[in-house]
Nucleic acid binder design. Structure first.
Length: 424
DNA sequence: ACGAATTGTCATTAG
DNA sequence: CCCTAATGACAATTC
């Protein structure tokens, strides 16, 4: 029975001391595993080889990332255009589909309602006794170096020779391969609302809606598929929208293959890519055990599974990040609104306070002026003031007896409310 | 040509 | 210990 671990071992064997192949550029540099896996092993398959190179991560990073090798190139043999029609259609289809889902989220190729985690798969994962060695981590720089090295040298990969430097790499990849979730969905909430009045929020709806359209011909637009993609089927075939027109050059099935699928096909991997990626470990291992797979195949399978899962994870991660940004934007808006409310409330309270103050002064004057000394004369406000004692009684206090610490307050602004009823 | 955005991948960490 | 999700970083590509 094969396990991922065994796959790793397989890599080790093949690629040497570094262990799991795919991961290290060093390995690749060594001209071993992956490149061997994806490319060299399959001499007869020219397309695949191109694919492998175009992919940023064939089983081992090193050689495969040859920018010059464009998927488009090998997909569209004889065409200088970097965009195959298939690509164009795909892009448009996808873009338009997601676009109307909306906002930035529309940018994500996979549907987001899929749960963030695919947990639960580990549960039944069988343990392998063989040692699993994480590949010594090759630094990315090194990996890239390796890749470029091959590219420049034209060695280690057939691609080097055929690569067309000016041909933009074309991704025919369909994320739906991963079979992640259902389309259209989450993110139906208007971001605009979230971002609210804050124009500074970078993620505005407008950005993407206009994207992908420019530069497309009217003809291409015709083929938009405004339906949501369904999760990939177990068959492993990609769910890229089927282009309904003219490209008949290659079989449609072939055109819609992802890079990994092409690689898998090149190595005659008997298990659908979708299954490789999505099957629970136990089922996955069970499936692997049914075949007698070469190390190259096992290595590729392992990489496909890893990439596939990580791709979904990355998409979820980005979606989540976007969610957080939106959420924070909402929070900011909410706080701003609250601040404005509080400011208005404060202004109201200040006005109210002044109003009560004035009213009190008026009452104070009225009470004070109504007081008379034994001779029937009014008390002079400079000589007396009204003060409230602790028990609530209002006292008429001579100014000179007031608390010296209190600045002589004007009669019009007593500290406490006088009680006309309790004069002394 | 240039920069921003998007996407896939790798490396790493944590559960 | 193994597997996987999460995530930062990078590179390629697109717009």
């Amino acid at each position: 029975m094969y396990t991922m671990r065994m796959l790793d071992n397989g890599n080790n064997n093949t690629s040497g001391p570094t262990g799991a192949a795919a991961l290290s550029g060093v390995q690749t540099a060594g001209g071993t595993t992956s490149s061997a896996t994806g490319v060299t092993t399959l001499p007869g398959v020219t397309d695949e080889r191109m694919d492998a190179s175009s992919d940023s991560a064939v089983s081992s990073m090193g050689s495969e990332r040859v920018p010059s090798l464009s998927d488009g190139e090998w997909m569209e043999t004889g065409s200088n255009s970097s965009h195959t029609q298939a690509d164009s259609h795909y892009t448009m289809d996808y873009a338009s589909n997601m676009r109307f889902v909306f906002f930035n989220v529309s940018k994500y190729r996979m549907s987001y309602d899929c749960s963030y985690s695919v947990s639960g798969r580990n549960a039944g994962s069988p343990r392998c006794q063989t040692e699993r060695t994480m590949p010594p981590v090759a630094q990315k720089k090194h990996q890239m170096f390796a890749k470029r090295y091959f590219q420049e040298q034209g060695t280690g990969s057939p691609l080097g020779a055929t690569a067309h430097p000016t041909t933009p790499m074309k991704y025919d990849y369909d994320s739906h391969t991963v079979g992640a979730g259902a389309p259209g969905n989450a993110y139906s909430g208007p971001i605009e609302g979230a971002a609210g009045p804050q124009p500074e929020i970078k993620y505005s709806c407008s950005v993407d809606f206009t994207r992908h359209q420019s530069g497309r011909s009217a003809v291409e637009h015709v083929h938009h598929n405004h339906t949501y993609h369904m999760p990939a089927e177990s068959s492993g075939s990609l769910q890229r929208p089927v282009s309904r027109d003219k490209k008949v050059r290659k079989s449609e099935s072939e055109e819609h293959l992802t890079r990994d699928e092409k690689r898998a096909r090149a190595l005659n991997v008997p298990i659908p890519v979708n299954d490789i990626i999505n099957l629970p470990m136990d089922e996955f291992n069970e499936r692997l055990s049914k075949y007698d797979l070469s190390e190259a195949q096992l290595s590729l399978i392992r990489d496909i599974r890893r990439r596939g899962k990580n791709k979904v994870a990355a998409q979820n991660c980005r979606k989540r990040k976007l969610d957080q940004i939106i959420s924070l934007a909402d929070e900011v808006k909410e706080m701003r609104d609250r601040k404005m409310r509080l400011i208005r409330e404060r202004e109201f309270m200040l006005i109210e306070r002044q109003r009560v103050k004035d009213k009190f002064s008026q009452l104070y004057r009225h009470v004070f002026q109504s007081l008379r000394d034994p001779d029937g004369n009014q008390y002079h406000p400079y000589e007396y003031s009204l003060q409230q004692s602790a028990d609530g009684n209002v006292l008429l206090v001579p100014r000179n007896q007031t608390n010296p610490h209190h600045p002589r307050s004007t009669a019009m602004e007593p500290k406490t409310k006088p009680d006309p009823e309790h004069k002394e």
